[in-house]
Design a protein around this nucleic acid. Structure first.
Lengths: 212, 212
DNA sequence: ACTTTTATTATACAAGTGTCCATTAAAAAG
DNA sequence: CTTTTTAATGGACACTTGTATAATAAAAGT
């Protein structure tokens, strides 16, 4: 069962193409294996020799996106030194751009009757990105799994709300909103004369600022 | 179709009882309508006259829990005046106790192949609780929907991680972990002599402290 | 080009799904 | 207690699901 067998490649891409087309017209959870195979001209038994269910086929799209997300995430931290909560460059939060770019896809991931497993894929991916980032900045004294879970899901909360509002804001606007949220959380410490010490960078995002 | 018709009450409770028993032995997504009806001695057509799918029956359990969650949530804010990020009474965060008490149920809600809609029910409920709480404390200058989404999902991120670790910590321990996370986020502003001003209460939770 | 390997097909099966309708029986209304 | 209302039943329908197996055909290996 070499993965390079031409027959396998042909079958799989036919199935993916069929699913892509069906997703333009109906919800993921209402698409049947039979339907995909009919459209792809592939025997139903062949489908089951490659995938267990419709979702497994959909998941293959997901893997590619997660790679792109990694790239989107790492970018802003190249400029982490110049970040100030007050003047965060809206373009910095690339994660919103990544989602905006693929909003067609994320619309499905966040839709009601889809299994939560896709959300978990996204969540765990962001969590890992944050956790890796934390290690770069040394020990925090806080349970790393819990802290990263808190921070990752906080961002995704904003994204969920964004998708619930049909992605009507631009990614740049979303970044602005996030900045205001972070500022609000830290409102106790700013605007205090003679107290201009770097206020923990982007704690809402990775929690790993540039100080200490 | 008065909701008080004895036949309806009898049928519905028989179906619920059957589902409850089945859930002790197998996953929600692997339980069929046929199976429930067989166990409940209810005609399959009768099931469909009340519910559209197995999930709709499960959702009825959920409604009750959300009421209990409201009670659990409101409790700690009766003591909000005495809250300090440094010495937050672990018992204060009742939401963890609520989940611990019903962990049997939440284990299902957070399990992989279940639809994300249940998570949304929980998320939106917590979001509303936080939003109401925000209004009590006046305008924030931040998009209320986005801020509450951020804060609600942050807490749920910790809960997801908790369930992923099979709820091995106690609710009290979880509260302690949350306190440490919040302290970490605010580490830039504490231990600064002569700067003992209430540090924004519980921003990670509701973001509405007691100052201003 | 020929042989070997194996992915794909056609077909069949038992089981579940969602929907419909005529019949039955239990509850509500008088 | 009798009548009226309507929930529940039993049976049937076309359809999807997941699995299995022998036959076919396309690719890989020599």
């Amino acid at each position: 069962m070499r993965a390079t067998d031409l027959r396998i490649i042909k079958t799989k891409s036919a199935l993916k193409e069929a699913l892509t087309n069906l997703l333009k017209k109906k919800a993921l959870n209402s698409i049947s294996v039979t339907e995909i195979c009919r459209l792809a001209n592939v025997n139903r038994g062949t489908f089951y020799s490659h995938y267990g269910q419709v979702g497994d086929l959909f998941e293959e799209f997901f893997r590619d996106l997660m790679t792109d997300l990694t790239d989107s995430y790492l970018e802003p931290y190249k400029h982490v030194q110049i970040l100030q909560t007050d003047e965060l460059n809206p373009d910095t939060i690339r994660i919103f751009h990544h989602i905006e770019k693929n909003s067609e896809f994320y619309r499905i991931v966040f839709s009601e009757s889809v299994p939560i497993s896709y959300y978990y894929l996204l969540f765990h991916h962001v969590q890992e990105l944050i956790k890796n980032d934390m290690h770069l900045h040394g020990e925090t004294g806080v349970d790393a799994a819990m802290l990263s879970a808190y921070q990752a899901n906080a961002i995704l909360g904003v994204v969920i709300e964004w998708s619930r509002q049909n992605f009507r804001q631009s990614a740049a606007e979303l970044s602005g909103i996030l900045v205001r949220i972070l500022n609000f959380q830290f409102r106790g410490m700013k605007a205090r004369p003679g107290d201009n010490g770097s206020p923990a960078g982007q704690p809402g995002l990775s929690g790993t600022g540039e100080h200490e």
